[in-house]
């Protein structure tokens, strides 16, 4: 590849980013408008069904739904540039306001879950790699495969059934007891079950990945050399193999941010946890266009940013990748 200056390199990235966001917004806009359903119902509730023809027309005009789709899209785009994303039909407030209230909850759940998943996955992966094909490794692998197969929503249901309904140890949903917002202990008690569901659902996927990455490294020639020099197994693994495996782990971490956040959406729904996930589900169901649009854009931008971060991390740590357009080992498995 011809050497290019840093400015050009980052310029290209930013241009690609803007293009992707633009395409994404157009796609989400048109798909959501084409889907059948009545946005008036979400604005006016049951009243929408009893409206006369004139009233309907007036309402549609007021919400700007009468123009052709491209016109609507351009108008939306123009307002979005000024930071005005419209109002939520259901909540009758600014979209940004509605999301702002909820986004913190999702970030807490997703963020803590993310850190736990990757910390534990690293430990578990290294442990399994050290004991490759021994009894402990096999048992952990077996349990891991089973847990990774459990559908997230079913796991959440089971957790609620066991810990909330039968044992009555923990609350079954929400982010805090009604009226008792802000208390630390209360919040933590509400977080335990959703967190458990998030972590168990994702843990093995990443632990297995790092295990296999390390085991792949152990097939390299330098390991044979170190072995023949008499270096201990564990120190080869920790000092050499792990070091080589970590870059790809970091890039996987970056890529998987949206993946894990997406996983929390489902769990939020089951636990009726007031986060973005529940909001996205509601807005998709009730055709709350403006809200849906911004939520999709948010998750889309997150995905694009994260995969770019992953690419940059990879290229920084391992310059060989820059010559290789396909990033191996990053496909979903």
């Amino acid at each position: 590849m011809i050497k290019q200056s840093k400015g050009v390199y980052y310029g290209k990235k930013i241009l690609l980013f803007i293009l992707s966001v633009f395409l994404l917004s157009a796609a989400v806009f048109f798909i959501s408008r084409l889907a059948p359903g009545d946005p008036l119902v979400s604005y006016y509730g049951d009243r929408a069904e009893r409206m006369s023809f004139q009233e309907r027309q007036w309402a549609e005009e007021k919400l700007g739904l009468t123009d052709s789709l491209p016109v609507q899209y351009i108008r939306w785009l123009g307002r979005a540039f000024q930071g005005d994303f419209g109002i939520s039909y259901k909540y009758k407030r600014d979209v940004t306001e509605v999301i702002g209230e909820r986004v913190g909850n999702t970030l807490i759940l997703g963020g803590i879950g993310f850190l736990l998943i990757f910390g534990l996955a690293l430990l578990l992966g290294v442990f399994c790699a050290l004991h490759e094909e021994q009894l402990t490794d096999r048992i952990i692998c077996r349990i891991g495969i089973v847990t990774s197969c459990i559908p997230e929503f079913w796991l959440s249901l089971l957790l609620i059934l066991i810990f909330a309904v039968n044992l009555k140890w923990l609350p079954s949903g929400g982010a805090y007891t009604v009226g008792g917002a802000g208390e630390m202990g209360d919040r933590i008690r509400h977080l335990i079950l959703p967190l458990l569901a998030v972590v168990t659902g994702h843990l093995w996927y990443y632990a297995y990945m790092i295990r296999n990455r390390i085991l792949e490294e152990t097939r390299a020639d330098y390991v044979l050399l170190a072995r023949s020099k008499g270096v201990k197994k564990s120190s080869i693994l920790l000092k050499h193999c792990l070091r080589n495996a970590l870059p790809s782990y970091f890039s996987i971490m970056a890529i998987s941010v949206p993946h894990i956040l997406g996983g929390t959406y489902m769990i939020e729904m089951v636990f009726s946890y007031p986060g973005i996930g529940t909001l996205a589900y509601e807005s998709a169901r009730y055709k709350d266009y403006n809200l849906l649009m911004v939520l999709c854009m948010l998750s889309g931008i997150g995905v694009i940013l994260c995969s770019m971060a992953a690419q940059i991390i990879n290229e920084r740590i391992d310059p060989r990748i820059r010559n290789n357009p396909i990033m191996e080992g990053m496909e979903e498995g």
Partner: peptide
Amino acid sequence: ILLSVPGLL
């Protein structure tokens, strides 16, 4: 781009 859209959505 398709891969980046959350599948369930």
